[in-house]
């Protein structure tokens, strides 16, 4: 059941991410629907679910954009690992803590992807542009991640799959 719920949210995130274009400010970061799902699983579920979610979300994000296959999965794994490490330092019941965690992980994910894309040579971004974009991603994640967490948790409670691990 947990896997089905995760697949549902990954598909919902991917669809929303494709329909909603990137934010036009602060370096044009994407709305991190998929990342929010990965962070939720990293914080609340067993590591195996987190790894599967990160790989699947990465595969979807790369397939729906020009990012080479595997790059987003790498970025999601880094962000998810960070969330997993920090899950006891942030109180997950408080919205501002989730906002903080989302912002840090989104910045890490964007930074990783920017680094990979620059190494591969498919984007031309200066260091300042990368930093601005990381800041933009952090702002978006701070807004979106708590909402996404609340929605997934609500669904899990309805279905009876919610387990408090945080």
């Amino acid at each position: 059941m947990t896997l089905l719920v995760m697949i549902f949210w990954i598909l919902a995130g991917a669809t929303l991410q494709v329909v909603i274009p990137a934010w036009q400010h602060m370096g044009q970061p994407a709305f991190p629907f998929l990342l929010a799902g990965v962070l939720y699983v990293a914080v609340n579920k067993k590591p195996i679910y987190f790894v599967l979610t990160a790989l699947l979300s990465g595969l979807l994000e790369d397939s729906l954009s020009l990012v080479p296959l595997g790059y987003s999965a790498c970025a999601f794994l880094v962000a998810g690992w960070l969330a997993w490490r920090l899950r006891h330092d942030f109180h997950m019941r408080r919205a501002h803590m989730v906002m903080g965690l989302g912002a840090i992980c989104a910045a890490a994910s964007t930074g990783t992807l920017a680094l990979l894309l620059r190494l591969q040579g498919s984007v031309m971004l200066s260091r300042n542009e990368c930093l601005l974009r990381m800041a933009g991603a952090a702002v978006l994640a701070a807004v979106l991640v708590p909402v996404w967490f609340w929605l997934i948790r609500g669904m899990e409670r309805l279905l009876g799959t919610w387990e408090d691990r945080a």
């Binding site: 598909l11 991917a14 669809t15 494709v18 790894v51 790989l55 990465g58 595969l59 979807l60 790369d62 397939s63 729906l64 080479p68 296959l69 595997g70 790059y71 999965a73 790498c74 794994l77």
Partner: peptide
Amino acid sequence: VALAVLVMMNLPDATSQRVKGAVRDGI
């Protein structure tokens, strides 16, 4: 996990495009 990511990142261009195309067409 590391192996899975590495394999994904190093798939031949044609295979990678085919996988991406299939997912994109699906959605």
